[in-house]
Amino acid sequence: MNKMQLKFLSRSENEIFARNAVAAFALSLNPTLSELSDVKTAVSEAVTNCIVHGYADREGWITIDCTVKGDCLHIQISDNGRGIADVEQATQPFFTTLEGEERSGMGFTIMQTFMTEFSVQSVAGAGTTVSMSKHIGAKAEADAR
């Protein structure tokens, strides 16, 4: 088992750093380009949520914890922002609280689709944690059978 932790300010220029750092950590699992792209996209979605929704008009810390265990990459992304009042509603495709801002409302749907497992824990006023994991090499194994 291998672990890493990243902590950075909720500034949008850190998005590219965050997704590439997680992707680099995942390299030990020998992922395909497609798997790596899925991981980067899911991380980018979660970090965008922390910046745009969690902290909205202020700056705060975002923490990413990653674990590699067997063929699985676990990623936990947390903020101490304002939290989500209704998680079920927030995870519906095309739902957004920022209608006027060109938001697609697809962030959680993309995380769910691109990762093997996905869950959200949120406490209104205290913050949100997204947990997700992906089996790397699952498709290659299936193809080889």
Partner: peptide, 13 residues
């Protein structure tokens, strides 16, 4: 080289 859902929002805009 990379696009997330913010890119989708941009295109729809």
């Amino acid at each position: 080289r990379f696009m997330d859902s913010t890119g989708i929002g941009f295109l729809i805009g």
